[in-house]
């Protein structure tokens, strides 16, 4: 089984979702990091989500 302490033996490689500055600072210290170009999808907007759920009969 995987353990948290296994992480400490690996090279840290990061996926960053959100503030770009966190990616930039990791690059600055030589860590491999990739930025996700995340944006809210229509389905994650609360009002749209509600409407969609009503429409699909899941609410």
């Amino acid at each position: 089984m995987r353990k948290i302490s296994d992480l400490f033996k690996q090279e840290l490689q990061v996926i960053n979702i959100g503030l770009v500055s966190f990616k930039e600072s990791l690059e600055d210290v030589g860590i491999k990091v990739i930025q996700v170009d995340w944006r809210p999808s229509a389905a994650t907007d609360d009002a749209t989500k509600d409407a969609l759920q009503k429409l699909l009969g899941t609410k």
Binding site: L7, Q13, I15, N16, I17, F22, K32, I34, V36
Partner: peptide, 19 residues
């Protein structure tokens, strides 16, 4: 810049941390 976490994992298969 991948659009999703899935895309990011494809690009960086040895990633072990997500912020």
């Amino acid at each position: 810049m991948p659009k999703s976490l899935e895309g990011a994992v494809d690009f960086l298969p040895d990633a072990n941390m997500v912020i």
